Computed example of a mutant assay.
Amino acid sequence: MSRYLSRFGRGLRFAVLGAGNGGQALAGYLAWRGFPVRLYNRSAARLEAIRERGGVKLEGRFEGFGRFEAVTSDLGEALRGARVALVVIPASGHRALARAMAPHLAPGQVVVLNPGRTGGALEFYQVFREQEVHPGVTVAEAQTFIFASRVVGPGRVRVFEIKHRVPVAAIPAGRTRTVVRLMRRGLSEFVPAAHVLETSLANIGAIFHPAPTLMNAARIETGAGFDHYHEGISPAVARVLEAMDAERLAVARALGTRVVSAREWLQAAYGVVGSDLYTAIASCSAYSGISAPDEVNNRYLSEDVPASLVPIAALGQLVGVATPAINAIVELASLATGVDFFAAGRTLERMGVAGMTVDGLWQYVLRGEKIFAASGKEAYSGSGAW
């Protein structure tokens, strides 16, 4: 990658793609830190107030003003000359954005999904292969989003908290160090993960979001407001989450990847301990006051089901691990919303790994080389051309 650095100069310019809660917070923070930042959003209307002010006002955890180099709905303008493109949109829009970005990317640029959910980097990477993007472009994904943040007014965003540790991995894995080195210049919380299977299968939102939404659908549709975690996750709901989590862990084990359980994650993230998942969630004060969605068809279904549960189930098929609990939630979500998520979500084909063996998948993740079970080898050297 070093031979491409000269085209971007010594400065580090960021393009932040997406001007929602997370995008405004991330762009504002980096600009406040003094980096050149270009903020992109497909809809120009969302950018009007930000463009008038020239940036966003940060409140809460950080206080200050982040002034942007550009505020645009022109994707080419946003990406031109940017060393790092930070994708901060719902995962359901990743595939379309990857296609739109493809003609505008240049060797040496780094694209980081914030976060990738499950299989996000694999899907982006596959789209870039299909669109013949230069292999000097790097794709990576963060395991989680760095901030808890909300837009609180026109050109104003509040950052409630910043995570202390955000694992990130590139495909192929050998490029992760380059990505981390760049990201840590602006965000020291980014740390290297082993590979994108680790970042993808450590997706706790896949467990905590869709099932409680579906199992509280009547409460949501009658307008009875309640806390998503402390009131929406009863002992019975938690048992379903534990079954789903056991399947996620089984898929990871079959792939030779170590990820923590939901209970272990709660202990590491918030210091809470419980004899079961229900007890751990109930004793987590950080979840107090987090309201349930006000409609059933929300991002906990429209994003977490197709971009988290579907790819976990698909990877389970690849390694021969049954995922009946996860499949049941996907089917219920499809019935509740009228969307066939198994057809619309991140399948093995969309992630570019259909027909691979486990060994072939590892070769792909670590080296960027495609090896299929019966049809021979389609290789990418990682340094020059697909």
Rank of each mutant, 00 (worst) to 15 (best):
A238P: 01
R83Y: 03
G76I: 10
G223F: 05
G382Y: 05
E247G: 03
E303R: 05
L241R: 01
A100I: 12
A268S: 13
L58P: 07
A98V: 03
R181W: 09
F208V: 10
A307S: 11
I326T: 15
D359P: 09
H209I: 04
S288G: 04
S6W: 06
G11I: 10
V139K: 07
M351C: 10
L39D: 01
L79D: 06
R219E: 15
T213W: 08
A328G: 10
F160M: 12
V179I: 12
V191N: 08
V16D: 05
G55R: 05
R80V: 00
S334N: 01
P306W: 04
L58C: 08
R33Q: 15
V168F: 03
R10G: 10
G205E: 02
E141W: 14
R83A: 10
L266G: 10
V321L: 12
V111L: 15
R42T: 02
F62S: 01
A142H: 07
L47C: 04
E221L: 11
E231R: 09
R158E: 14
F147L: 09
P324E: 08
G119M: 01
L47I: 07
V87H: 04
G116M: 05
E231H: 12
L30F: 12
G382N: 05
K163S: 14
G368V: 02
A31C: 11
D304F: 06
A70Y: 00
F226M: 15
Q24E: 09
E130D: 15
A252G: 04
V305F: 11
T138D: 05
V56N: 03
N298C: 15
V191I: 07
M1N: 13
A344P: 00
H164P: 06
